[in-house]
Amino acid sequence: MLKVFIYILIILSPFLFTGLINKVKAIWAGRKGAPVLQPYYDFFKLLKKGEVISRTTSFVFRIAPSINAASVFLALFIIPIPFLGSVIKFPGDFILFVYILGSAKFLTVCAALDTGSSFEGMGASREVTFSSIVEPAFFIILGSLALITGQLSFESIFAAINTSTGYTILIKLLFVVSLFIMLLTEGSRVPVDDPNTHLELTMIHEVMILDYSGPDLAFILYSSGLKMVLFSMLIANLLIPPSINLIVALGLFLGIISLIFISVAIVESLIARSRMSHVPQFIFLMTALSITAFAVIIFFLYGGF
């Protein structure tokens, strides 16, 4: 029952976090900023509107937002809540997690190309290039987690890693940083992408959805919001300390998620977006960190090389 409640809370939350980011950024910049609930108002307004659809497009453009929404929902149920576990769990469920999000991305990219706009093609091209670097790094993290815990599903991996002590602190730290980089990349935030830019030439994710409007746009905004929450849930799961009671753990879980979003906002306020040609280097940092983590694990498991 509590589990259902928490999941519903998370399903309702994405726009709260988006609003939070905007508010923190506004305060940091010395502005008052839009209300935290503003994204919700936008969302419901979009649902009520009609649509303008490009004549160039085909069926791909129309189904992509629905597939996006379906995939983030399925992915959400694979990620566990501390002490309560996840809904879908089986050995290797993290592979399904990655690939189900992948199929949404495939359709989004195709929908961008469907409009025949050169801007959207540009965004699509960048998106696939960057995710081709992120993917192997994420699998290195997952493999390392399997190696260190001897488990193959998110739920049991997190349960095991949070009870083990010693050098896992170091591993966790490395993973948290690299997952944070992944969150910034997948959530299209600064320094990889700037959601607030007003120039199509400089965008990645935002430019791919230029032609969407109405309910379809609402679906997409919701999905990308929830996707960021998914990755922050992964990070939060890593950081839950063992031997605390359920309520504290849940509070901590939601607290860490909020903290992650606040740090996204702070990162966004402090640094500017990287040049496109420098973005891969930033993402390679994630690869480097995860390989380091793997090396550390090997070092401790086998007592030196």
């Binding site: 303008v52 659809i53 004549r55 109405g214």
Partner: peptide, 14 residues
């Protein structure tokens, strides 16, 4: 959601 709402066909945003 789109029922009874206007769905306009237009050229791609450029």
């Amino acid at each position: 959601f789109l029922k009874k709402k206007e769905v306009k066909m237009f050229k791609t945003w450029d």
